[in-house]
Each structure stands twice: as structure tokens, then as C-alpha cells.
Design a protein around this nucleic acid. Structure first.
Length: 425
RNA sequence: GUGAGUGUAGCUCAGCUUGGUUAGAGCACCGGGUUGUGGCCUCGGUGGUCGAGGGUUCAAAUCCCUUCACUCACCCCA
């Protein structure tokens, strides 16, 4: 086969797509309760948006973005890229709508594909789906806590065991001192650092802290919490206190460092034990300077994104099943019966709310019953010329090989009633 | 970008070390055993450029080279 999908892209089929939809539905329902409103933003943006927000030296901007070839006659668009993450686009839309000035306190969620050119591996694809939440206009610790509680709610609804880790990176006032301390620590131990860390040191020294190779060295490195100024410390203490009151289980991990420039104060990562190396299923944090950086008013912000693909993988690792089976397989033998069966199937769905799959009528009964079994139907409704003439249908309960003749007009109601009985047991 | 592992039927894999007739199994699919009754059983059938290209050889799934893809990990990150 030569027309294969592109590397790192996936066709989501069967349980995979059902797991993702399941998470999305749960998350959407949760958004309703938290009064978070949906926002839809373009998948294509100007490259500058990410250079200025994500950070010019980040890997995302330096080597992972998909650039789009524009038509020669289009003018003034500059370099366009497929969005590698959601936050900058939402911030842009927020500013562009003038909300930062007219009505700054806003909460949005978005859902959709993101694209990054990376080497694929388990839980990492070039196109991946994110469900993200962004809250603008609130600098208070209660807001941070509310988001984390929201995440805990989702975790509970999905029945997943996840680890929540929290850190504070400090603010524009106190972070520089911390960064400087890490830099100096790194320089002092330069000879002991791994090759990757040598590169990190000047580019993004905070990254030293979550290096896997130099774990021992990182343990002795400066702790961001020791460098928090009074306001940041109080903020972080309040967040933790609110989480404890809400019964949210979390750990403080000073090594949680976000890769993107715009994060400050509260940062967090939620990971799954069920996954491989790419185990962060949710990550986010506060980014109070970002809106201003992108040309808006000085409005604070905080947000997170769920990696839906990863979350789905974790869900599929658990014992949860994502099979779907129709309640009724409709079997028609012959042309006249097919017409009648189509009517009955329609009525079952519309009036009795049953899930009904009509099987291909161009096959023998044996093959059709086999098919009904295969798709996991609970009942097979058989209508042939015999039944048609007598105004009845054979209703077969597959698991028990019980079969009864029921007046065609009564089939839908009878099955619905039986299912109700089973459900109430 | 780096490293390791793997590419044989729709799926899971055997065969490759030591080259040798028509390349196998299980599952799945289709059909018979049952003129209109599934699962279990049984008999049969469809299905393969052995990832691709080149080389060695009388002969290559098997040996050599190149290349591509997939997987996992590094890196990065959701």
C-alpha cells in the first residue's frame, strides 16, 4: 500500500476513538458545571504568535512547528504555522475580541488537534488532541486551586489513578534570583553534568532540574520554593491549603519545571503510571505576563491542557471496556421483508430509543445470525416472507437461544420492556 | 536530531542460524455439514511483490549492502 498515513499521524478507530470521545464528553460536562465556555480558534496562525509566547529558544518553536506554504497571491500573512499548542491562540483571540479591556475575567475551554514535528513514540504523535482550559483575569490563589480541583474531579469521573505534582516557579521579581542560583550551581558542577545539560545550562537552566541522568545532582540543586518572595510564598501556601480542604491529593515537586517561557508561580503536572516515558497527561500553570506580552492589557492568566491521546491510552490500559454493541440486530430475508424491517428498525430507534443495526439483507440466515452474534447484539429480530404473511417477527435472544414470535407491531415495545426489566435487576 | 529492536496472509507469529521442490500455523473472513437459525465441532476455500532496491549464487524469506517504515527509549512535551 503506497497511500499510507504520514509518519506520526494516527487513524483513530474502535476503542481508541471511543476512549477519546468519552474523555471529551466527561470534560465538556465538567466545563458546564464550572461555567467554562467553549472557544474555537484557528488551526493556522502567524508564526510570531508562538515565537513571542512559547519562546524563541524552545524546541517547539525552533524545530517542531509545521510551516504552511502559502499561495503566491496571498499577501500580508507572513509565515504561517499549524498550531503546536492552544494557549497562545486563545490569548490572541481574547485580546483581539477586546475582552482584556471590556470584560477581562473570562474562562474558556478549547478542544482540537495540535501539531508538532517530533520523533513519534508511545503517547507522542505529530498530531495530537488537546482539551485545554484557560482562565483570564484572576490572579488569586483560589483560581489556581479551582482549576486543580476541576482536574481532580475529572480524574474521579474517569476512574483513573493519576499523580498530581505541584510547584511554584516564583514571579518576575523572584524568579531571576532562582534562575541565577541554578545557573551558578550548574556552572559549579559543570564537569559532572551530562552532555544534554551542558546545552541546557545556558539556554534554559531550569531544565537541569528535571534531567533524568543527573537526578542525584538535581536533588542537591537550588529549590525554587526557597527563592519565593513573600507574595509568591503566600500564594502557593494558599493554593495548597485550598487543595487540602477540598481533599485533593497532590505532591509538591520542586522539579516540575515547565518547558515554556511564559509560566510563573503555580505550575503542575498530572501523570499516569500506566503509560511509558510520555506519561504527563495534563500539564499547565500560571502565566501572568503572557497577555501583556502578546499586546494585551496586563491581565493575569492560568491554564492547563489535557493530552487526550495519552489520557485515552491510560484509560485503555485500565480494565475499562470501550466496546459498543447494538441492542438489536435486524435481519430481513427477501425484498418485501427488507422494506418492512427498515420501517420497524426506524420505529425502534425513534419510539423506543433502542440501538438497532440493520444487517445486509443479501445473505443467508445462517450468515446473518453469525453476524448478529459477532457484533454482540442482544436480540436478533428476524423477518422473512413467512413472518410477513403472519404479521409477526421472530425475536431471538442470542445469549440464551430463546426465541419467540411477536406481532410485528409489538416488537419494539416488547424489546424495550424486556431491556428495562434487565436493567432494573 | 541520537540509540536500540522489529518488518513473512487482514491480525498474532513460525520458517532465516546451516540458501534447495508449490512459503506454513492459529485467529479472522467466505462456504459445505443444517432448503430459514449464531456460538462449539467438523470439512473445504479466499488471501502473500516474504517492507523496497541492489548484490552474491545454478538457486535467496534465508547470506551481503543500501534504503524505507514501524516500535520503544533519549531529547522534548500534553
Amino acid at each position: 500500500m503506497e497511500l499510507t498515513r504520514l509518519r506520526g499521524f494516527q487513524d483513530l478507530i474502535g476503542p481508541q476513538v471511543r476512549a477519546i470521545s468519552f474523555i471529551e464528553e466527561k470534560a465538556r460536562a465538567l466545563m458546564e458545571r464550572y461555567a467554562v465556555r467553549e472557544i474555537r480558534i484557528p488551526i493556522l496562525e502567524r508564526i510570531e504568535l508562538y515565537v513571542r509566547s512559547t519562546g524563541a529558544t524552545s524546541d517547539i518553536v525552533e524545530k517542531q512547528m509545521y510551516t504552511v506554504e502559502r499561495r503566491a497571491e496571498s499577501k500580508g500573512e507572513g509565515q504561517m504555522v499549524l498550531r503546536p499548542e492552544g494557549t497562545p491562540g486563545v490569548v490572541r483571540a481574547y485580546i483581539e475580541a477586546g475582552l482584556d479591556r471590556s470584560d477581562p475575567e473570562q474562562r474558556f475551554f478549547y478542544c482540537g488537534p495540535m501539531l508538532r514535528y517530533e520523533r513519534p513514540q508511545k503517547g507522542r504523535y505529530r498530531e495530537f488532541y488537546q482539551f485545554g482550559v484557560e482562565v483570564f483575569g484572576r490572579a488569586d490563589a483560589a483560581c489556581d486551586a479551582e482549576l486543580l480541583i476541576m482536574i481532580d474531579d475529572l480524574r474521579r469521573e474517569l476512574g483513573l489513578e493519576l499523580k498530581m505534582e505541584l510547584n511554584s516557579l516564583g514571579c518576575a521579581d523572584c524568579r531571576p534570583a532562582f534562575r541565577q542560583a541554578v545557573l551558578e550551581y550548574g556552572r559549579a558542577h559543570f564537569a559532572e553534568l551530562c552532555e544534554d545539560c551542558h546545552a541546557r545550562l545556558e539556554r534554559n537552566p531550569l531544565r537541569l532540574l528535571d534531567c533524568k541522568i543527573d537526578a542525584k545532582l538535581a536533588a542537591g540543586a537550588p529549590n525554587s520554593l526557597d527563592y519565593l518572595d513573600e507574595a509568591c510564598r503566600k500564594h502557593f501556601d494558599t493554593v495548597r491549603d485550598l487543595l487540602n480542604r477540598a481533599g485533593v491529593v497532590f505532591e509538591v515537586n520542586p522539579r516540575i519545571v515547565r518547558g515554556l517561557d511564559y509560566y510563573m508561580r503555580t505550575t503542575f503536572e498530572i501523570s499516569s503510571m500506566a503509560l511509558g516515558a510520555q506519561n504527563a497527561v495534563i500539564a499547565g500553570g500560571r502565566y501572568d505576563g503572557l497577555i501583556e506580552e502578546l499586546g494585551g492589557a496586563p491581565v493575569p492568566g492560568i491554564g492547563f491542557a489535557i493530552g487526550l491521546d495519552r489520557m485515552a491510552l491510560a484509560l485503555l490500559e485500565s480494565s475499562r471496556k470501550f466496546e459498543v454493541a447494538p441492542e438489536v440486530a435486524m435481519i430481513a430475508l427477501g425484498e418485501a421483508a427488507t422494506a418492512r424491517a427498515t420501517e420497524i428498525a426506524h420505529r425502534m430507534r425513534r419510539e423506543s430509543n433502542l440501538t438497532v443495526e440493520m444487517l445486509s439483507p443479501d445473505r443467508g440466515l445462517k450468515a446473518l445470525l453469525k453476524r448478529a452474534d459477532r457484533i454482540g447484539a442482544r436480540y436478533a429480530v428476524i423477518i422473512g416472507d413467512n413472518e410477513l404473511a403472519r404479521g409477526i417477527a421472530q425475536v431471538r435472544e442470542l445469549a440464551h437461544s430463546r426465541q419467540q414470535e411477536i406481532a410485528i407491531e409489538e416488537v419494539a415495545a416488547t424489546i424495550a420492556r424486556e431491556l428495562e426489566k434487565i436493567a432494573s435487576r
